[in-house]
């Protein structure tokens, strides 16, 4: 039995670029960057939805917008039936407690001037949960749960390695016992050997706390490993989505196919395998016209992007 926890439809987020004071005075029309341009997907309770795509395709913007960390330009995101974008006051606060986020950069995601204890307890302080002693206790519990020791609670972020910092970031995201966590490239800044530790940890935590993940990544192997279903993003749009096996074993969209083809496998049989690489650059949504040209020139572009969506 599945139950939809989050349902995003037609999400749009446009950035207005380079609107300086002089531009405004001179009436220069600022550039519009359609970072997310009509994205729809659903996340079922307890599953991991992998959101995969190349740099600048709007993955992070999608994640942050649907958590209300950026204001959307259009669309809706229904979390447990309620539109996140309509929430305010106490309802927004409740939503914030139910949804957490883990960031990519283990260095910029922790305040260098706070200790691990303060960082992990921060969500509790912000939401006024418990007494100081209770919060300390909870921080100790969490730091052990993510595989560090309570003896490390009073250390500063720069005394930890990248993987350890990422664990602290995960502990922070879990402090308020959320149901839903957006993992924004949580392992892409880590060494391979450490990356596996974090992936296993995320797996275990999901089982233990019944978490639902939106897992954003550019590494297809990682996405395959962790996801139940996958959405492939290209240029601010979702070009294909479906169960993980379908996407990886029988991709319908040529872009997905090209992505899969491009990944070099860690196997000697890979030696010298020439990839029929996608021509051209990864287009930037900044230069919309050029993108469309690139996409239309694309040898496979006649297929309808969502024709095979949600084949499940």
């Amino acid at each position: 039995m599945t139950e939809t926890l989050l349902s995003v439809s037609d999400l749009e987020k446009h950035y207005v670029d380079g609107a300086s004071l002089t531009d405004r005075l001179l009436g220069v029309e600022p550039d519009r960057v359609r970072a997310v341009d009509g994205v729809s997907f659903e996340v079922q309770r307890g599953e991991t939805l992998g959101l995969v795509g190349e740099s600048g395709c709007g993955k992070s913007t999608t994640g942050e917008t649907l958590l209300r960390l950026r204001e959307p330009t259009g669309g809706t995101a229904a979390f447990d039936g309620e539109d996140v974008f309509e929430l305010s006051g106490p309802e927004l606060a409740t939503f914030r407690r139910r949804a957490g986020i883990v960031f990519q950069d283990p260095f910029s995601s922790l305040d260098p001037r706070l200790t691990a204890r303060e960082i992990i307890a921060e969500p509790l302080v912000v939401n006024d949960v418990g007494t100081a002693a209770e919060r300390d206790e909870r921080a100790a519990e969490l730091i052990e749960r993510v595989g560090l020791s309570t003896g490390q609670l009073d250390r500063y972020p720069n005394e930890f390695s990248g993987g350890q910092r990422q664990r602290i970031g995960i502990a922070r995201a879990l402090a308020l016992e959320p149901e839903f966590v957006v993992c924004d490239e949580p392992v892409s800044a880590l060494d391979v050997s450490v990356q596996a530790q974090i992936l296993n940890l995320l797996d275990d935590l999901q089982d233990e706390f019944d978490l639902t993940y939106l897992f954003i990544a550019h590494d297809l192997s990682v996405v395959r490993h962790i996801s139940d279903r996958v959405a492939v993003m290209y240029l601010g749009e979702i070009v294909e989505r479906g169960p993980v096996e379908t996407i990886f074993e029988d991709p319908a969209h040529p872009y997905t196919e090209a992505l899969l083809r491009s990944v070099p496998r860690a196997d000697p049989s890979e030696h010298g395998r020439r990839v029929d690489a996608l021509p051209g650059d990864v287009p930037s949504p900044r230069d919309r016209a050029a993108c469309f040209r690139a996409v239309e020139d694309h040898p496979y572009w006649d297929s309808d992007p969502l024709a095979h969506a949600d084949a499940d």
């Binding site: 407690r97 950069d105 910029s108 001037r113 939401n127 970031g169």
Partner: peptide, 26 residues
């Protein structure tokens, strides 16, 4: 634009809290 500021916002922290705990000390 540091991620820890975004993180604080994701927990529901207000601007005054963020300026006091994160922006000013840094």
């Amino acid at each position: 634009s540091q991620e820890y500021v975004t993180a604080a916002r994701s927990m529901g922290a207000g601007d005054a809290f963020i300026i006091r705990t994160h922006v000013f000390p840094n």
